[in-house]
Amino acid sequence: MMEKMIFGRFIPGNSLIHQMDPRAKISFVFVFIAIVFIANSAITYGILLGFTLLVVFLSKIRLYFLINGLKPVFILLIFTFLLHIFFTREGDLLVDIGFIKIYEEGLRQGIFISVRFLVLVFITSILTLTTSPISITDGIEVLLGPFKRVKLPVHELALMMSISLRFIPTLMDETGKILKAQMARGSDIGSGPVKDRIKAVVPLLIPLFVSAFKRAEDLATAMEVRGYRGGEGRTRYRQLNWRLIDSLSLVVLVGLAGILVYFRV
């Protein structure tokens, strides 16, 4: 299950979307989130959905993987949909089977909310699927730059984030390894009564903590020996490159907002 989850993961590629500047993509997502709330009719939601599918198409991420990887999210989606259907009691009565009553407005709301949810999840997933975590970090660091004035430790936060991201696969591997080692010694998190499962977490967590501390210590030593003394006087190796397409993407977004406002009921 976990390995099929693609929410928050990065698939390398060189599509148009992959090549965009992370600052543009992050801004794009935030603006898009705001724009979504303009939609309020079948046409506007249809336009949003069409636009989102176009972005998915441009990213060259296969829709199958996207849908397959976001399965857990769909459970939530269906749940919200049902909630709306059963609890909105406006408009004409469409279905009436005993205690189940579905009204037209309920169905409409259910579909709208689901589409809204879907496009948000798709667009944010496309952001993380097409942007390496380190680029996202870079983007955030630059976008948060102005907050340095109010003493927000932006550099340190970004470094922390990039190191955490860098160590996620390492720690995942290690978790898997220790889990297997303890399973081989007869401890099993995956089965048995809840009490046993909770007990089985300890032999997993303690070695993980011990190792994470050891790694942190080693890493601190390595960083210090390599001359790390905080953000002061540091230069940056990674340079961001804002191109025409990045400006264009934001223009397109403004256009989209305009269209939505025009078709809004």
Binding site: S132, P133, R166, T170, R215, D218, L219, A222
Partner: peptide, 14 residues
């Protein structure tokens, strides 16, 4: 300086 554990001294993302 190069240390023992290859993983614990790799600071950069790439």
């Amino acid at each position: 300086m190069v240390f023992q554990n290859p993983d614990n001294q790799f600071v950069g993302a790439t």
